[in-house]
């Protein structure tokens, strides 16, 4: 049955479907409804909700719950995520699965609470210390806020790694129909967890490797795991078969770009859209494939240009990659992006 649901609420509904029974967090606009709905729903299905004293405490609570083998999550926005970065590095280093949701707002500093996509570097490149990666998923609708949260839990457990759902203020705040199907989730058995049982007595959760050779070996193992995870890359294309100009954007921007493609095509301009669904691993192969047929790529972000770097790396100079960004909480309209596409397409001829 379809229900009208807010993006932030859908995250928690997806999490519960995925078997998440522990939430530790701290409120912040525009992510607070995630904590609020976790507080309302999770205890009713026998789980734990705790409002931590800070985001620092919250992420370290997530660390504890994950160490004990529980499917656990937290959510925040910009400044809160900054505070969580040390903890996320520890989680990755200790190979603990968890889900972290970032409903991105405007920055830097206190910035504002309107939508931006300016946390791409922090989440995709790893905002904490050391060599590590987060799995990063970018929902573009309320339905995906739930579905990609479910996927985030699965991938986190599969790779024993933090998975980030990178949303934005609009996707968190908007309401759309949500269609959920109930199924029993069989969470994987976590033989490595520490649960205070005879079977898990010999287990150790740690990220410290004092000897250089040991730490190098540990990092090589993580690296191999990250390479294995490349098969998880996901994307969506729209009207790319005959496209002359390829638009690339994720999350809320991809929605505006989709409408832009329609408007452009009505006026005879062959535009197409590639939307990365996973930002790490980045859908490099799909992008290279789509780029092989176009004359130009235009990347649009709610940032000063972050994902565009990965697009350029993927395309490796074979096609010109241009960028258009809005920041501060401004989301471009279809007309605005259409004008951009027209301007850049004109330069092609």
């Amino acid at each position: 049955m379809r229900q009208l649901c807010k993006g932030n609420v859908a995250v928690v509904k997806g999490a519960i479907l995925a078997g998440c029974r522990a939430y530790y967090g701290y409120p912040i606009t525009p992510a607070s409804e995630i904590a609020e709905s976790a507080a309302l729903y999770i205890p009713q299905v026998g789980g734990t909700f705790l409002q931590a004293e800070s985001e620092v405490a919250a992420i370290n609570m997530v660390y504890g719950a994950a160490a004990a083998g529980v499917r656990v999550m937290t959510a925040s926005s910009g400044p809160g995520l900054s505070l969580m970065q040390e903890g996320m590095s520890y989680l990755a280093g200790a190979e603990l699965p968890c889900v972290v949701v970032d409903v991105v707002r405007g920055g830097p500093g206190l910035g504002n609470i309107a939508p931006e996509q300016s946390d791409y570097f922090a989440m995709v490149k790893g905002g904490g210390h050391g060599n590590y990666r987060n799995i990063v998923l970018a929902p573009a609708s309320v339905q995906e806020m739930a579905d990609l949260t479910v996927l985030a839990f699965e991938l986190a457990d599969k790779y024993r790694n933090p998975a980030v759902v990178l949303a934005d203020g609009f996707t968190g705040q908007m309401m759309e129909p949500l269609d959920l199907e109930y199924r029993e989730i069989v969470a994987p058995e976590k033989l490595w967890a520490v649960k205070g049982t005879p079977e898990t007595r010999a287990n150790l959760i740690s990220s410290i490797y004092l000897e250089p050779d040991q730490l190098e070996e540990h990092q090589r193992r993580l690296e191999a795991k990250y390479i294995r995870a490349h098969v998880e890359a996901r994307h969506e294309v729209y009207q790319t078969e005959d496209a002359e100009i390829l638009l690339v954007g994720y999350g809320i921007v991809s929605r505006v770009l989709r409408s832009t493609v329609e408007v452009a095509r009505k006026q005879g301009l062959k535009a197409g859209l590639l939307r990365p669904i996973t930002l790490w691993p980045f859908p490099t192969e799909a992008l290279v494939e789509a780029a092989s047929r176009v004359q130009k790529i235009l990347v649009v972000e709610l940032s000063n240009g972050q994902m565009v770097e990965d697009v350029r790396l993927a395309v490796n100079g074979k096609v010109p990659v241009e960028f258009y960004g809005r920041v501060g909480g401004n989301v471009p309209s279809v007309e605005e992006l259409h004008a951009q596409v027209l301007e850049r397409a004109a330069a092609l001829v």
Binding site: A22, V56, A57, A58, N60, G64, A67, A68
Partner: peptide, 10 residues
């Protein structure tokens, strides 16, 4: 903080 969540889990 971590001990809190471990205890809540177990």
């Amino acid at each position: 903080a971590s001990a809190t969540a471990i205890k809540r889990a177990c």
